[in-house]
Design a protein around this nucleic acid. Structure first.
Lengths: 283, 283
DNA sequence: TGAATAGTGTCTATAAGACAATATCCC
DNA sequence: GGGATATTGTCTTATAGACACTATTCA
């Protein structure tokens, strides 16, 4: 990849005050430090001489689109912003990338600190870097998506909001989604801060795509579940009904389900067998 | 996503000198500027008062894994590094993200400036952010992959190297790949700079996955091609032979191919019909 | 016994793999 | 004509959708 010495001129930000960008002179000085001959210790010497601050840099954050399925609806977890910009609007949990932590660790930290959730399935989604997605300064955000089963949401921080996700597009077309605060009846759609409606849309699109060929659904269910539970989760995520017979066959044939021998309880009809996902999915 | 005012302490980098990070005092001062009441102009005022430099930031770069298929081999385009670190090693074309350009534009620019290629299929791949992936300072890179048909590689800058990609894993397992300089006979594998072997591996994995459900193959072929050409490309990318009959049927049934009526020329056997990809792939 | 859902069996349509037969070009 | 690959057609097998039928629980 590209490295600082590749004489890319530091970009003067169009407006921000007190940016760390240096003058072209300082830039040249930083470059000059590069020795002309290769040797074992060259990297060491170069490293010491290198001035990491010679170039203007965007801020880097991570944002987490946490998805779950509750009462046959896709839901996500939002925080209400307490300061500008977009004060009062809802936003995904997110935070700055620290200089000494890997991206995925930052995503897990944010989920822990802002939502009170740990040990959650987490995967990188997409990186959003539109120039003005944050009105203050250039911010590139590495978005992650996370999946939890709804039971775990009870333990989430009290200052979070659960919102139902409404997907206004079919299949995997893509685009932003609409969110409605859960509980508060028929209320209008929430306007999310920044490009977070796009991030959520990208997350929905991604998980829809993955559902077909990965056993991702079990992240949205408790440890034991029935085939009907699993099908309902798939249908909720995909936003369309599935054929019961072939769904059963496909799932059982996938080799990723394990019958527990136990039966459902407390239902007013014939109880279904409980299944569990088996980890040996190394096909 | 996360914004600067979210009181995340600026991380003191373990070692880099002259970082733009401020003291906790400066940080507090930047925060203090946030007004306490919401109003229409609040964002404006906050914006003016906000000091974007109050937090230490990683560098952000883009790297492009350019893939092509030449003589039934997967190839990529590399540049030889002229300065440390990893001086003399080969690396993907890459460069800094400028403060005023979107990520994808940066990727296209890098491809244009460093490889001399324009109008290339380009898609975001993954963001790599291991803490020490660059020995000098924290660098987060947003990797893109690009596809071109080999004819266009002739026009690439003369200081680039074409390398054959050898995939040491099957299917879509993933992991780094090996590269061998093209032309230079049976030479040993190139050791790539940074984590670029991983980036290439991720690109191969991605395109293998996409090949099944997207008409991505045509990016690797000239405008007109035979079904046999297309199959060879698929086989090269996937690293395994495909059934000819069902490949033909699938491709023709996909509705994304358009017969041109023209026939192959200059072949010492029955000429095949030439096809073209049709843009109307809005299934 | 009836309501309700679970689970099985069968039939059909569609897609994939195998293979044979024929077509068309260059030498 | 012979070599080589293209293209079509048929047969077989696997998978998906549809639907009928039986099973089991609770009220």
């Amino acid at each position: 990849m590209a490295q600082p010495q590749r004489r890319e001129p530091a970009r003067r930000a169009p407006s921000r005050p007190k940016s760390p960008a240096r003058s072209p002179g300082a830039e040249r000085a930083a470059r000059k430090a590069a020795p002309a001959v290769t040797s074992e210790s060259e990297d060491q010497r170069y490293l010491a001489a290198y001035d990491a601050s010679a170039f203007e840099r965007p801020s880097v954050t991570v944002d987490v689109a946490l998805l779950s399925v509750k009462d046959d609806a896709l839901v996500t977890l939002l925080l209400s912003r307490t300061s500008p910009p977009f004060r009062g609007r809802h936003a995904l949990p997110g935070g700055f990338l620290r200089m000494d932590e890997p991206l995925e660790v930052a995503a897990a930290r944010v989920l822990h600190d802002k939502a009170g959730l740990s040990d959650v399935f987490l995967e990188q989604l997409y990186t959003f870097g539109a120039v003005h997605r944050d009105p203050r300064t250039r911010v590139v955000t590495v978005a992650y998506y996370a999946l939890v089963h709804p039971g775990r949401l009870e333990a989430a921080s009290s200052d979070t909001t659960l919102a139902r996700i409404e997907v206004p597009w079919g299949g995997e077309t893509g685009g932003p989604v609409d969110c409605h605060a859960l509980g508060t009846a028929r209320s209008g759609a929430l306007t999310l801060a920044f490009d977070h409606a796009d991030i959520l849309g990208t997350a929905v699109k991604r998980i829809r795509g993955k559902l077909d060929y990965t056993p991702i659904g079990f992240q949205l269910l408790p440890e034991r579940f029935t085939l009907a539970d699993l099908q309902r989760v798939h249908e909720t995520v995909l936003g369309r009904p599935l054929n019961k017979d072939s769904f059963r066959r496909r799932m059982l044939a996938s080799g990723q389900l394990e019958a527990t021998g136990e039966l459902q309880r407390e239902v007013d009809h014939r109880p279904a067998e409980l299944y569990r996902f088996s980890r040996r999915s190394a096909v």
